[in-house]
Design a protein around this nucleic acid. Structure first.
Lengths: 335, 335
DNA sequence: AATCACTTTGCACAAACGTGCACATGCCCC
DNA sequence: GGGGCATGTGCACGTTTGTGCAAAGTGATT
């Protein structure tokens, strides 16, 4: 976000008395003329007595600030086969991001992230309490959020992010900050490590009022947004490589046939999770509690995550699933 | 609408079994990639293995068929002053179409019509019964409707359109047809003249079952769309010039201080209408009944209609008002 | 198989658009 | 009052997009 934009947002937050900042008034007019009346930017420039380039900039501002919302709605009766199949087989609303074989894995992540961010926008409401996990997928999403004005919304961190190494994850807080900025929401960080060394420490901490406040927010979540980690083939995801777990922990995971995690809470292929001891030291949300949340959005990019995803779906963790087409195919056809 | 598009629509109506026509499947993919992933048309063409120009055409198809919906939402707290004032003074939701002094009157009509058509789209739902008036304003609107898939919707004509002269108004049915095509709705015409010569004929006709069917539909309307006629300064609108009324009728209107009409039902500046005898010969809907409709959308373009509009607002005929900025200013400032 | 009517495609060109850059304007702090 | 900084503007250029046109499908009919 440019410093200019930030400044604008701040000014708006300070409930000052000037009725409408002239800049965004013009942006609104321009947007109406461009998107609703089909004028060219040149024509708009003449009417606003400014240059075409300024109009171009007004319009991109209008898009970025969520003044203009572009939605794609495919009437359910003609929803693409893949999305229908996923809904039928797994009971979640699927949003498949079109992608062909020409596209590299990192491009896929980018595209899924952009589309996820755009899909999220319309679902966010005022008075929402939005739980957000951290990880490479959600980080990518956070870079592409479009702004939307809401009142009294809160972003709450789903699981701690501290670890023993220096593997600088300042970015958990960065991710949260971006969500907060996009939706004009309060941000509540969760200042604990991802895993405690001792389950007793967790018990103790969970009794602290400062922590209870966060846990209470989590219980009242109206929406949760998370990726999945997967122990499957290929690159292990952040949690498995970033110094959060030691050799012994990883051995435990293998012995327990863990296939993946959501917000550092682990589960098996069949979705079971209650008897995995590592979860007692994890700061992620109890999955039973997570299942109570009205809207639970899972973002997945890349086939390496399929195993983890299968487990997450078996556990019923998501109500909505945003994933790339390649993964979607694999998910449906090899099941 | 092009013959091609029509053909497509017909094929869709015939509930055939092929799951998804390949053309619109591509359109959906293209739209997602363009609007949700910010790819260029060139990139999309490569992925779809076609030419860029085809992608351009797919995208315009996606827009026209309502696959892509572009909305402009100005958060209420920063709604432009004009719209707020109108809401406060007249109790209707105003949608002001930005227009500057550089623009000619006929251009204004066009722009209001386009924006009205776009604004309408999101409000139309399945199972709707939509009453539609006829007149130059609504005719203009009907040319710009974007398609939207709905089920079991009905378009019903609000008032008769026949007259004694040859002033070829085939266009009442044309207007209706376009609404029907845009929303995939049944069309119910109202095959009566605009005015009967004798009130008794109306009474007789209103007892006919064929007419009753239409009246019944009108009573169950969920939405009504109409312009206003105005006797005020400048050009008299269609009804006053088109051979619907003779000299004597016009004299009656003047004597009764009629300021305008909605769907050929007349009212005075204060909104009163029940004792205007001409209304007993009009085929337009009883205004009391109209007021029961949940959503009543009034489209107005041009300052010459202000007098009529004032009366219509006083009568509480509209819940939503779409009008050009110049008229909006006049409406607010000279009241 | 040939014809016809009609749709769809790619090309080529013109129009419309985004953006780096240099300059203007306003504001704060010294 | 002037220098420094932040913000906004218009120009110029390269890129991206819309569209008329001719050619290539497509499918029904003879």
């Amino acid at each position: 976000m440019s410093p200019a934009a930030q400044n604008g947002a701040n000014r708006a937050n300070v409930r000052n008395s000037d009725p409408t900042p002239p800049r965004s008034r013009d942006a609104l007019r321009a947007a109406q003329m461009y998107y609703l009346q089909d004028l060219t930017m040149n024509a708009i420039a003449r009417e606003l007595r400014t240059s075409r380039s300024t109009v171009s900039r007004l319009l991109s501002m209008a898009r970025e600030t969520g003044l203009v919302q572009i939605q794609i709605n495919n009437p359910l009766d003609r929803a693409p086969a893949l999305e229908r199949e996923i809904r039928n087989n797994f009971g979640v609303d699927a949003h498949v991001v079109p992608v062909t074989d020409l596209v590299s894995d990192s491009d896929v992540l980018d595209r899924v992230a952009i589309q996820a961010a755009r899909t999220l926008g319309p679902l966010v409401d005022s008075n929402a309490i939005i739980g957000v996990a951290w990880g490479s997928t959600i980080s990518a999403v956070s870079h592409h959020l479009t702004r939307k004005v809401t009142h009294d919304s809160t972003i709450v961190q789903l699981n701690g992010a501290g670890n023993t190494q220096t593997t600088g994850i300042t970015y958990a807080s960065e991710i949260l900050r971006r969500f907060g900025a996009a939706y004009g929401a309060r941000v509540e960080q969760f200042p604990v490590p991802a895993f405690f060394d001792h389950a007793e420490t967790k018990t103790a901490m969970w009794a602290e009022r400062s922590v209870k406040r966060i846990l209470d927010l989590q219980e009242r979540m109206t929406m949760a947004i998370f990726g999945v980690g997967s122990t499957g083939s290929g690159i292990p995801s952040h949690v498995y490589a970033g110094g959060y777990l030691d050799e012994e922990d990883l051995a435990i995971l293998r012995r327990n046939q863990v296939v993946g995690d959501v917000a550092t809470v682990f589960f098996r292929a069949d979705g079971s999770h209650s008897d995995i001891v590592l979860n007692e030291r994890s700061t992620g949300p109890d999955l039973g509690m997570l299942q109570q949340v009205r809207r639970r959005i899972c973002v997945v990019s890349g086939e390496s995550k399929i195993n983890g995803l299968r487990g997450a779906l078996a556990a019923g963790l998501a109500t909505d699933l945003i994933l790339d087409e390649r993964s979607a195919r694999t998910l449906v056809h090899n099941s």
